[in-house]
Nucleic acid binder design. Structure first.
Length: 625
RNA sequence: GGGCCUGUAGCUCAGCAUGGAUAGAGUGCUGGACUUCUAAUCCAGUGGUCAAGGGAUCGAAGCCCUUCGGGCCCGCCA
């Protein structure tokens, strides 16, 4: 068990005392203290009862404190009332530490049973397969990946989906480029195909539409063929998007993200799910046929506080948002599944990646869930809200469809300048179409190169392969952490120079703490013995134990609130606690063998826990760096 | 015009859901600590009318209202 033991014990004892004293039951909190001099936990019961008992919070705290001192309990060392009105508790670390330390070395330490093994779907990435991933996409991938890891740890049965919009306008653009724009479908030597499609073909063909109307007309025709899916153009489009997708996935995998299934939009269109959904919406009166006004003849969904939204045009053709509805319904398992599944790849972590097919010789599997989380940036909020409303009607349940939105990533003025854009000192929105972006692979390469130099300087004895491995891990740690540490509703202004910083509140800082711990364990040359009594602990050791003991509570918080940042903050807190311990408490040169063993237990427990926490962030920590 | 988000230290951000103790980090700047388990570290100092105003409360950075600043979205495009 964990620090929960301590909190739970206090909670039940305080409740019991209140009951004994005849106080009305209250919803009091047991929280961590705001400062160490107040002890380890505090209770606000004094404030809550002050009015009804007509007493000062302090007096109430004092009464409870004196009662509490009679029973004490296993994990509480001291209780006291503070002038402010709080009831404060000090933990009995020699009792707690043993539980926390021995538990922390179990492989499922931190696991909680929030999900009770229920099926949940997380969709993320879903980048149009006509370009390479840029840093904006990276935020989406990392948020989705981390959320799915957290949910898994919270005992949800998670399916991760990546939606491939292989029949949209953006794909049509590059097909125009290949078929009518004179671009070869072979990239120049040394350039990844996704980079070539995005950086050269897409950007240039979009620019050429301005002066070449016939080219722009071709695009409409090609879009139609892609949607119909039978022609040679459609087959060519399929081949191209699959080549781009393959390259995009390499970047995703490099970042440490993995998936369960790829869903192709073209197949959703061909499966005719739309008709089923359309009829269902009609019969449930979710949509209506507009008789008059600007939308006359269209099937619309009524806006509550916003304008009505057209789902089917007056010519009978469904709009863009309509394409998303069958997919959303499929994710929730509302429809009979028309798809079959075949293996696309086996990923690094041995997780099989499946893809949808319409070939009934392939396997039947299930990737839908009771709840669905769709990770898309908040510019899509309006459309996502419409889908959410429809899905909740279908399910007749709130919150079965969740749009996990986040603010986008913009480029700093300096970084924009490096792309030859003068923004007048302001940051700028990225745009694939206009070529305003920084590719993810590029950022990783630069970061990795810088880290390589650092690692080599510090570890002259390590060989080339090891150094490359370390620099790749640190580069990914730096980027992932930077994308996850702030709240989802904060805009990230990406600056190339700033992203190279490896100090302070960064991924590498945390990885470094792990490497330090590993070095101590390596040099100790013995496995610590865990059947020891943890007494005479210094404040740094207590702090470290306390932080280790909070892991499962942090996971609960993160899973309930779908807040990946919570785990990032926790990892940072762990590293800070360990670094303070490292600087102030000697392990290998401890005064006695038993003290050395006790401290080794702590170091071991730390490295076990931080690696599990970092794993939730998808960050690997090197043994040396 | 309507909708969503946001405003806390020079800069980047925690804290806000669930109000309560002297508002915290990182970075920057100033100084200090490597013959020591890796200084990608640690320690100290510096730095705040919590955008502004009002309200409810014993008590507000947090809740309610108003105003102001910033970002994004609002097509029978995708």
């Amino acid at each position: 068990m964990t620090l929960r033991l301590f909190f739970d014990e206090i909670r039940s004892n305080v409740a019991e005392i209140c009951n004994k004293l005849g106080y009305a039951p209250t919803d009091f909190d047991i929280t961590e203290t705001s400062r160490p001099e107040f002890g380890d936990a505090s209770c606000n019961i004094g404030f809550l009862l002050a009015r009804s008992l007509k007493k000062r919070p302090f007096d109430i705290a004092e009464i409870i404190s004196s009662e509490y001192n009679k029973i004490k309990g296993k994990f509480v060392l001291g209780v006291s009332a503070h002038d402010s009105g709080y009831l404060n508790f000090t933990a009995n670390y020699s009792a707690l530490a043993g539980h926390i330390i021995t538990d922390s070395i179990n492989s499922d330490y931190g696991k909680i049973d929030l999900g009770k093994n229920s099926k949940i779907v997380v969709e993320h990435t879903s980048v149009n397969p006509n370009k390479a991933l840029h840093v904006g996409h990276v935020r989406n991938i990392i948020i989705g990946d981390v959320v799915s890891r957290i949910l898994q740890k919270a005992s949800y049965d998670v399916s991760v989906l990546n939606y491939v919009d292989d029949s949209g306008l953006q794909v049509a653009d590059i097909i125009v480029g290949f078929k009518y724009g004179g671009y070869s479908d072979k990239p120049p030597e040394g350039q990844k195909f996704d980079h070539y499609c995005g950086d050269i073909v897409y950007v240039n063909i979009t620019e050429r539409y301005e002066n070449d109307k016939s080219l722009a007309e071709k695009r409409t025709l090609i879009l139609k063929e892609l949607e119909e899916g039978k022609s040679d153009i459609a087959k060519f489009g399929d081949a191209i998007t699959r080549r781009v997708l393959e390259e995009q996935l390499k970047t995703c995998w490099r970042l440490g993200a993995t998936y369960d299934c790829l869903n192709f939009e073209s197949q959703i269109i061909q499966s005719n799910l739309w008709n089923t959904i359309f009829e269902k919406m009609k019969s449930m009166n979710i949509i209506e046929l507009e008789r008059e006004g600007k939308n006359a003849g269209c099937w619309i969904i009524k806006g509550e506080s916003e304008d009505d939204k057209v789902l089917v045009r007056s010519n009978g053709v469904a709009t863009y948002i309509a394409k998303d509805i069958p997919y959303a319904a499929w994710k929730l398992g509302i429809l009979d599944d028309p798809f079959f599944y075949k293996q696309y790849a086996i990923q690094k972590n041995n997780r099989i990646l499946w893809e949808t097919t319409l070939d009934n010789k392939d396997a039947k599997l299930k990737f839908s869930g009771e709840r669905v989380i769709t990770v898309i940036d908040s510019r899509q909020s309006r459309l996502q809200n419409i889908i959410k409303k429809i899905m909740n009607d279908f399910k007749s349940k709130e919150n079965s469809y969740i749009h996990l939105g986040y603010e986008s990533v913009t480029l700093s003025a300096d970084t924009a300048k490096s792309l030859n854009l003068d923004t007048g000192g302001k940051s700028i929105q990225m745009s694939g179409r206009k070529g305003i972006y920084v590719n993810a692979d590029y950022v990783l390469d630069i970061l990795s190169a810088k880290t390589y130099e650092e690692a080599k300087k510090r570890n002259p004895d390590l060989d080339e392969i090891r150094l490359l491995q370390i620099s790749e891990q640190v580069a990914i740690g730096a980027l992932r952490y930077a994308m996850i540490k702030q709240d989802l509703d904060k805009l990230i202004t990406f600056d190339m120079t700033e992203s190279l910083s490896l100090e302070g509140d960064t991924g590498p800082y945390i990885q470094y703490a792990y490497a330090r711990a590993m070095r101590i364990l390596e040099k100790a040359e013995i496995m610590p013995k865990f059947d020891v009594v943890f007494d005479q602990l210094t404040s740094h050791e207590k702090e470290l134990i306390k932080t280790i003991g909070k892991f499962d509570m942090q996971i609960e918080d993160a899973a309930k609130n779908l807040s990946p940042k919570t785990i990032a903050k926790y990892c940072y807190k762990m590293a800070v606690s360990f670094n303070a311990f490292y600087e102030h408490v000697k392990v290998l040169t401890a005064e006695s063998e038993s003290l050395k063993n006790t401290r080794l237990c702590l170091v071991y427990s730390f490295k076990e826990t931080i690696s599990k926490a970092l794993h939730l962030l998808g960050i690997e920590a090197p043994d040396r760096m």
